[in-house]
Structure formats: structure tokens, C-alpha cells
């Protein structure tokens, strides 16, 4: 297997782990961490996908990864603020045991 395929399979594995824990976890904080893990798996794929093009190193994927990281950070920060507010207001830190909120 070429150099790149090894990394892609590893990234796929990490992505799977993150997805599994996102769906299973009941505590919101664990779910947010799972999302962060899946994000890093994707950045891994992006970096590996770069691969040299006609000799010169291709800088575009690096730029994409940087932007991706910035967006992931801001999204998670916003989610955490929301989580804190939710815990204060409703006292529960999980989406599973909520009463039906639209009655």
C-alpha cells in the first residue's frame, strides 16, 4: 500500500471512533469532544491528500487545514457557551432526558 493509503485508512478509523462516541455519549461535553476528534481526522486526510504536484509542494491544502481549524475552534467555543447556558437554565447537561419541549 502506498504511503498515502495508510494515512487515509488511519484517518477513516479516527473518524469512525469520533462518530461512534458522538452518537453513543449522553453527556454533551463528550459529544463535543467527539466532534473535535472527527474534525482532526478530516484535517489529516486533507494534509495527506496534498501530495506533491509536478515537483513543487502544493500549499493549498495547508491553507485549507488552517482555515478549517479556525472554524472548528469557533464552532466548539460557541457550543460550549451554549452548553453552559443550557446547564444553568435547565440544569441538565444532556439532550436525552429532556421532556418534550414543544407541548
Amino acid at each position: 500500500m502506498s504511503h498515502a493509503e495508510v494515512w487515509v485508512i488511519a484517518a477513516a478509523a479516527v473518524f469512525g471512533i469520533g462518530l461512534y462516541s458522538l452518537l453513543i455519549a449522553s453527556h454533551l461535553l463528550r459529544q463535543l469532544i467527539a466532534i473535535k476528534v472527527m474534525g482532526s481526522a478530516i484535517f489529516l486526510v486533507l494534509v495527506v491528500a496534498a501530495g506533491p504536484i509536478d515537483g513543487a509542494l502544493d500549499g493549498l491544502p495547508k491553507a485549507l487545514v488552517l482555515t478549517g481549524i479556525v472554524i472548528a475552534i469557533s464552532a466548539i467555543a460557541f457550543a460550549l457557551a451554549l452548553l453552559v447556558r443550557l446547564a444553568e437554565v435547565t440544569g441538565s447537561t444532556s439532550l436525552e432526558d429532556e421532556a418534550d419541549d414543544d407541548r
Partner: peptide, 12 residues
């Protein structure tokens, strides 16, 4: 509270 919970689910 209802909006907060809905927003959290939407965000995830």
C-alpha cells in the same frame, strides 16, 4: 429553555 435545547440539538 425550549429554544436553548432545540438550538443545542440543531448545533450538534
Amino acid at each position: 429553555p425550549a429554544a436553548l435545547r432545540a438550538a443545542m440539538r440543531y448545533l450538534l
